[in-house]
């Protein structure tokens, strides 16, 4: 425990990094499958089945990253877990109901009588919408320091819309990669229609964050930090331009480069997230509780970390295995 210096310093840091990584993986992975759920009403009936098929083998594991992220918050930073979740009581409730509806209708729409299928398709969309909106809302409230004032709520409502549209964009990008023919063409137009959500979301949070706290402002606009930070907006801008250009000329011959919009969208999410993580560090509850103050006892963190070092590579490798087994264009979902 002492090898890397004071365990009360490096252990919270390691757990903040692990938690951050889980949240990022969650946002990208469940982002695309929530996004696909949001696109369901836009597709016709046979396309709906294919949409669902494209996320079928993955969504469950994708949501487990949320459980891991919240779990790490719970186990590594228990006081922060209580503080954050009690102040987000209502949006958390909306998200949970949304995730429940979504997961259940996913199964039900394929198993219930055909006459009910419309209903479960509706529930699938509604659940995806509730989960996306509430996550965006929580993101906005978090940036605003988790205090419920009118301007903060207004800002959070805005980020709710942006994140939802952003999710629909990464969902469409996933579909461009995993589908073909007419559905792929539609996915390309959905992606063109959704990219603004991602851009506006990133812009809104980037504009608001430094002005909420002078500490973050100084971190951004002081020399030479501003120089180290500058690749973030530059690469993000380049990715947006690339996406714009790429989407306008898709679909390409022989399905060429169909993975690039998804990869670029993942890059954008990662950069935006990296920027946020940089801004808020070392706070886990913005401007109130640092990761060092909120951390559990070092002995407890150490025993979790030991397990993590063995288990996380295993999780990552069998997750990759699963994406490999279900590689290629999405096929009809069959149990046999």
């Amino acid at each position: 425990m002492e090898t890397f210096g004071d365990p009360a310093i490096w252990l919270p840091w390691a757990f903040a990094a692990l938690m951050g990584l889980s949240i990022l993986i969650y946002v990208v992975l469940d982002g695309f499958d929530l996004g696909v759920g949001l696109l369901v009403p836009l597709a016709d009936d046979t396309q709906k089945d294919r949409l669902v098929a494209s996320i079928g083998p993955f969504w469950d594991a994708n949501e487990t990253w949320l459980v891991l992220a919240v779990g790490l918050l719970l186990v590594a930073f228990p006081t922060a877990h209580g503080e954050i979740l009690t102040s987000l009581y209502l949006p958390v409730f909306v998200m949970l109901i949304g995730l429940i509806l979504r997961g259940v209708s996913f199964e039900m729409r394929a198993k219930a009588p055909l006459t009910q299928k419309k209903l479960w398709n509706g529930a699938f969309f509604a659940g995806s919408l509730m989960a996306s909106l509430s996550q965006g809302f929580m993101l906005g409230m978090y940036v605003m320091g988790l205090t419920w004032t009118l301007p903060h709520v207004a800002f959070a409502l805005l980020t709710a819309v942006f994140l939802t549209v952003g999710y629909s964009f990464i969902g469409a990008a996933w579909l461009i990669w995993k589908t073909e023919g007419a559905l792929q063409t539609r996915a390309i137009s959905w992606a063109k229609g959704g990219i603004w959500g991602l851009v506006m979301g990133i812009a809104a949070i980037s504009l608001a964050t430094p002005f909420v706290s002078t500490r973050i402002f100084d971190k951004w606009f002081s020399w030479p930090e501003a120089l180290y930070l500058s690749p973030l907006p530059i690469i993000s801008g380049a990715l947006v331009v690339f996406l714009w250009w790429q989407l306008s000329r898709m679909p390409l011959k022989n399905d060429g480069w169909s993975w690039t919009p998804f990869a670029a969208a993942t890059g954008l999410f990662t950069l935006a997230y990296g920027g946020m993580a940089y801004s808020f560090y070392p706070y886990v509850v913005p401007e109130k509780i640092t990761i060092y103050e909120a951390a559990s006892a070092p002995e407890s963190l150490f025993i979790i970390l030991l397990g993590t070092l063995f288990v996380l590579p295993a999780i990552l490798s069998y997750t990759v295995l699963s994406y490999y087994i279900f590689r290629g264009k999405a096929a009809e979902l069959k149990y046999d």
């Binding site: 719970l74 979790i304 999780i315």
Partner: peptide, 23 residues
Amino acid sequence: LAYEIMTAFFLEAVFLGIMLFGA
């Protein structure tokens, strides 16, 4: 709880996809 998530949840969730749709 952390050990439950890491040793059980991911194992179930990932291989469920293969078990259901991978035959």
